[in-house]
Write a protein that binds this DNA or RNA. Structure first.
Length: 296
DNA sequence: ATCCAGGTACCCA
DNA sequence: TGGGTACATGGA
């Protein structure tokens, strides 16, 4: 067990929100200790005040995974400046409310492979169901690491499994998506790492070529696994929240019945700027209180 | 019981 | 391109 003391520049940091907000699905909290599996290793993290107690990671790995090397104040300042520039207003009530609720949230650095499968699994499901599904897949196909904790299966391991048993993990119709993506990655081992050297639009096109990966899933992977902080995944919550809190966005539908995926994403990028994806996470994490506040 | 969820593929005009 | 629908499953 090691200790990391957070500096002023690393604040605010909220471990609970960061690991439970629905960006990553396999962390579990028991008696103030979070346990997770990253790259086949068991990791524990807990936080009391400014001290982070951890095991399984080196200090550098911990900082990298939790993105503690990025100063939240700089991100916040950038987003606020863009809001002011775009709206002409001094501050944004909705965004500030989200920050008060969850300003300590960090967008963590996930492994591309597990992130890809996780978000294929996520479609048309609520977060508790997604967590259960992914944990069942790890339990079924991963290696036992100890204490009922399993590694996330690698592409070969998943590619070799049967559609029917995948469905027993609660995957439903997503089983074939998982299978096809696994097969593709197993046959093209450099697929995910090669995305690092591509532009965002190119990387997005590559991700969209996978069966079962649409715009929302591709954008989640770009944001969570490739640190493309300007990318804004648009799920049903964000769509509802943006159209409710920022009704001006409907002007962008231009004769169409509803805003398109891209209308919403582009509006967020115009409003929040180069950290729009980060801003999206703040809004997503605070969605209940924000929607309650807007009486809808 | 009914509705809905960090959507996508597929079809049609 | 935009609009509609089926899809398996589990949570609330």
């Amino acid at each position: 067990m090691q200790i990391l003391h957070l500096t002023d520049r690393q604040l605010p940091f909220d471990l609970d929100i960061t690991l439970s907000c629905g960006q990553v699905f396999r962390w579990m909290k028991k008696e103030n200790i979070w346990t997770g599996i990253v790259r086949g290793r068991i990791i524990t993290i807990s936080k009391t005040g400014r001290e982070i107690w951890y095991s399984g990671f080196t200090r550098e790995e911990l900082i990298h995974y939790l993105a503690l090397d990025i100063e939240p104040s700089l991100i916040l300042a950038d987003i606020r400046a863009t809001i002011t520039q775009f709206t002409g207003l001094e501050s944004d009530t909705v965004f500030e409310k989200a920050i008060r609720a969850g300003g300590g949230l960090r967008v963590i650095r996930q492994e591309p492979w597990e992130c890809l499968i996780s978000y294929i699994c996520s479609q048309n499901s609520n977060i508790p169901a997604i967590k259960k599904r992914i944990n069942l897949i790890a339990h079924q196909y991963g290696r036992l690491l100890g204490d009922d904790l399993y590694s996330f299966p690698d592409p070969q391991e998943l590619a070799e499994c049967k559609s029917a048993t995948l469905r027993e993990c609660g995957s439903g119709y997503r089983a074939d998506y998982i299978l096809q993506a696994s097969t593709h990655i197993a046959q093209n081992p450099s697929f995910l790492t090669s995305l690092n050297s591509l532009s965002v639009p190119q990387a997005r096109r590559h991700l969209l070529s996978l069966h079962g990966v649409g715009p929302k899933v591709a954008d989640c992977i770009l944001l969570f696994a490739y640190q493309q902080y300007a990318v804004v995944p648009v799920d049903v919550w964000i769509r509802t929240l943006i159209t409710t809190c920022y009704p001006q966005v409907k002007e962008r539908a231009l004769g169409r019945k509803e805003c398109s995926y891209n209308d919403i994403a582009q509006y967020c990028q115009d409003l929040f700027g180069s950290y729009a994806g980060y801003a999206q996470q703040y809004l997503f994490a605070a969605r209940e209180s924000l929607m309650a506040g807007s009486k809808l």
